[in-house]
Amino acid sequence: MELFIEGVNFSYGSYPVLQSVSMEVKPGQVLSIIGPNGTGKSTLLRCLAQVLKPQGGKIILDGREISKINSRQLAKMMGYVPQAAGEAFSFTVLETVLMGRKPHLTWGVGQKDLDVVAEVMRLMHLEELAQRQLDELSGGQKQRVFIARALAQQPQVLLLDEPTASLDIRHQLEVLELVGDFAHRQKGQVVMVLHDLNLAARFSDLLLMLNDGRVFAAGSPRDVLNEANIRAVYGVKARILNRATGYYVIPLNPV
């Protein structure tokens, strides 16, 4: 169930956003897409989720090109959590997680569906919140609900767009640990967009650094996050600290 993309191009009208982007993620790996604002990080994630159709290149999952997989089938392979959009109407936590079963069911909800939902809600510590309305929850709780919905699809690949945005540090760590468990314990793949370089360094096996829609650097966090790369891509002078607790980027000043 390998996921790789090869030479993906995407443009909005005549404005190119992604230019021949390639990458590869194996089961059990977490890949984070990093880079400055407007370099196409979310666009790349949307292409992976097939919300946008790339104009060129291939996205291959499990040996099949995903644009050729029917949408219901694909929904069982990839779970996508976009940046929080306003909910039009209030659903309960249980109803929201149950929506993740949509690709698996026709109209009625079966025992299997409820089993999966119960298991996912246990993993995401949502059982106590089952009957609460979504709009009564905090940002961190909501994010866990959305990830639970994606996990209820029983996907191979989890796609997350800035899962830690607007979360406090405790919830950032909690969400990223849960996401890491999905990759490392269940041998799934995680592809996410992260802004925080230190969180990205700590929780990712691979980093993909984008600049102006192109891959600037790719590899392990230690390979990608060096002073030269950060200066070239972000225009920021930074210092790298390598400590027993981890690998840290200390931004100093813009250049």
Partner: peptide, 18 residues
Amino acid sequence: WDINALAAGEEVAINLGV
């Protein structure tokens, strides 16, 4: 179900196969 999925947002609905 499709309408339920759409309530969660267009992108989510597309990802759920709608």
